[in-house]
Simulated assay, not measured.
Amino acid sequence: MPHSVFVDGAAGTTGLEILDRLTGRDGFTLIQLDETRRKDEAARREALNDADIAILCLPDEAARQAMELLDPDAGTRVIDASSAHRTTEGWCYGFPELVGRTRVAEARRVSNPGCYPTGFLALIAPLVREGLLPDDWPYTVNAVSGYSGGGKELIQRLESGEAPAFRAYGYDMAHKHGPEMKAHAGLKHGVIFAPSVVPAYRGMIVEVPLHLGAMAGEPTADALRSALADFYADSLVVSVPDSSVPSELVLEESAPPSDGMELFVFGNTGGWHARLVARLDNLGKGASGAAIQSLNLMCGLPETTGLRLPAA
């Protein structure tokens, strides 16, 4: 029997990408509201409670309000793509590679990871768990994203001709991704997060520089790369290329959608310094692709069904 799915906020970037991945797929029936009803509370309440699974593609406060529209006895399971519930007790963090596929498959409430935290956590969380990196280190995250993750206002600004070559932000040191990165990496301190945007529509590079020689045990870049390769060995979504160093890592202005993620570890001669880098699509594994991956698991389907992944 098909699973009924309602995407609340389907007119936004993430919602549209999710619908694009679901349209025409066997096993799902989409509950959709026309333009005159999609903001009508009564219509949304009915759709939310009629769905087997609701996917919330809403601002944080609107996502919290949507949860209030749910009848506790309706049985609707939820994937929340906002940041409203990413550190909330009772919610499963929707990163199957880190929390376990079974946990996601059995969850009733799944919070989709943020795009920047996806890259940071993919790199750091396994290494902290293995004891290769300390949980009390003052980590720094330098990251650049395509502008599609900046919301409708930024998209409209850049696509109307106002396209700076580089836009850095988050200087108040209080970005909403901070608590998520600290909590799910198991860190004792918050991270210094330096996000930026370039005039490419999609794509993201997240980098964590490390002074390995100043750490207890002096871990090596090769050991970190090997540990990440082992951790993601059974993943069809996350890959860890070999030790060859590319001349550059780029974000292409018109890159096609991708739901995969690549992790790199670069070390200098002597091993004192390393740069851990994640390259992903902020709208793919960083948003819509992650939601579809969780949806597949929750419905008992192969987790990569409907995902856009590079050929093996």
Rank of each mutant, 00 (worst) to 15 (best):
G94Q: 13
L69Q: 10
F95E: 14
V104F: 08
T87Q: 11
C92Q: 14
E41K: 14
I79L: 07
A74K: 01
A51Q: 03
S111P: 06
I55W: 02
R86K: 15
H85F: 15
R108F: 06
G75W: 06
R64C: 02
V99Y: 11
E106Y: 07
D71C: 07
W91L: 10
L69I: 00
L70S: 04
I53W: 01
A51Y: 02
E97F: 12
A105V: 13
V78K: 09
V104D: 12
S83M: 11
C92T: 14
E89Y: 14
V104C: 12
I53K: 03
P72R: 00
D60A: 10
D50T: 11
P96Q: 14
G75C: 05
R101A: 15
A51N: 01
A42N: 07
D71S: 07
S83N: 14
G100C: 09
W91V: 10
A47K: 05
I55T: 00
R64Y: 05
E68T: 06
V78L: 07
R77D: 11
R64P: 02
C57Q: 04
I55L: 04
E97W: 12
A66S: 05
W91Y: 11
R103L: 12
L98Y: 13
R44Y: 00
A81G: 06
E97N: 13
G90Q: 12
M67N: 03
P96S: 14
A51E: 00
Q65D: 06
R77K: 14
V78W: 06
A74W: 02
C92A: 15
Y93I: 07
D71E: 08
A43H: 05
E41S: 08
S111G: 10
L70P: 02
G94N: 12
T87N: 13
E46C: 01
A81R: 05
L56N: 01
A42P: 05
A81N: 11
A84I: 09
H85T: 09
L48R: 04
H85S: 14
R64S: 01
R103M: 09
S83H: 14
S83Y: 09
P96G: 15
A43R: 08
A63F: 05
L56I: 01
R45M: 05
L56G: 03
A47C: 01
T88H: 15
Q65M: 04
A105C: 09
E46S: 08
E106K: 10
H85P: 08
E106P: 09
A66I: 01
T76K: 03
A105F: 10
E61P: 06
L70M: 06
D71W: 04
Y93C: 13
A74T: 07
A62E: 13
V78R: 08
E41I: 05
